[in-house]
Design a protein around this nucleic acid. Structure first.
Lengths: 217, 217
DNA sequence: TAGATTGTTAATCGATTAACAATC
DNA sequence: TAGATTGTTAATCGATTAACAATC
């Protein structure tokens, strides 16, 4: 590992999961080593970028040889913290929450989903991904006892602010935010990862329009 | 509108939906005008950036006054193409597809979801968001007749490549890709907007770890 | 007119790419 | 040893920020 003095930039971090995916695939193909050049061709980026990215964390390669795929795969997994079992809770078990809870493999991604909460009586008590949905009234007691670190927000935007404030006061250090609401810049020392689905869809709308325009010309 | 000669950069496009959201909120509060300075404070960015971003598309403001909120809101909506009714189909009506189909307001985002397909007999024929799920066998005929422009991929990664190839051959010009699979760089003149949920979660994993580290020191 | 605030040009900052000496 | 490929420094590119003249 290298000096942790200046922290790694966001663009680099965002590329790590993609490296991890490609390396997993190569590993499963039984390939042992790869050069930055070869990997760059497969991934559609430059060899320079790969080497720069990896050297933010240390020298994982070997001159004249390249990188050992399995080793690099494990290193990146460790950097991301995928072997952790960070306790996570989900707030909101509607359509989206339900899908996220059952669709995502939290254990492979460094998390342990330990509780799901909702305030809708029709949902409380039902099973979602093998877990019984709890009432929001029991959230505080649960947090004091279980000390979850991350909260997944799958609630309507209008409840996001109050819920987030409460959760931070209960010790939450990170949000996976599926809400329209802008959580970033609100808290000190709290990580926020936004999944703004509507924003993403609008971006696609623009792009498709642009392609249509350029084709018509 | 301004010269369309050099196209607008991706970072700018990605910020447009956020502007749109803030302006909608301001509009609903009944506020009529806003300066780039005031908006920048609310959004946590610089006034310069806002003015630069907006001037990619034309001069919507007025010196000494600022921007008319309703007008700017409408302009950005028009730039994004939110008034379009681009025909979209969904491939895969599992947990995630079901949630996306019912959770997203496609009509406000420039799209019209006209068909949902799956190859699971247990799902075919059921209703999702008021629409009957069709069999994948009928996809080709449907596309030839209805000419959808965008496909939403909510299928396992291993089926992504074959489905995407087929859909492109059937005239699809854009993907909203919820698959692990990397669609970008595969096709000419096809827009791809990725929602890599697992990647996003891994990024959060890293960030939470970093916060913990810095707090312990 | 004076004050405010834009549109736009210039300066800065950061991220990506290229180059190459180090070394396996 | 010679060839290959890294780690790292230097050059380039692009995006963000600052400055200011134009103008409402």
């Amino acid at each position: 590992m290298k000096d942790n003095i200046h922290q790694v930039s966001i663009p680099v971090i965002k590329r790590l999961p993609r490296y991890h995916r490609y390396l997993e695939e190569l590993k499963n193909l039984g390939i042992v080593r790869i050069s930055s050049k070869e990997l760059s061709t497969r991934m559609g980026l430059t060899a320079s970028q790969i080497r720069q990215d990896l050297n933010c964390f240390g020298g994982f390669g070997q001159q004249g040889y390249g990188y050992n795929i399995e080793q690099l795969y494990n290193e990146i997994g460790a950097i991301l913290g995928l072997n952790n079992k960070t306790k996570a809770i989900m707030i909101g078990a509607g359509n989206l929450g339900h899908a996220i809870a059952t669709h995502i493999h939290f254990d492979n991604r460094g998390f342990d989903l330990i509780g799901i909460f909702d305030n809708n009586p029709a949902v409380i008590g039902t099973k979602v991904g093998g877990k019984t949905v709890m009432s929001s009234y029991d959230l505080e007691e649960f947090c004091l006892k279980e000390k979850p670190v991350v909260a997944i927000l799958c609630i309507p935007a209008e409840y996001a602010a109050e819920n987030a404030d409460k959760l931070v006061s209960l010790g939450i250090k990170g949000f996976w935010n599926f809400t329209q609401y802008d959580l970033v810049h609100r808290y000190q020392n709290v990580a926020v990862e936004n999944v703004h689905l509507s924003d993403s869809l609008m971006t696609l709308c623009y792009q498709v329009k642009e392609i249509n325009n350029s084709c018509e010309e």
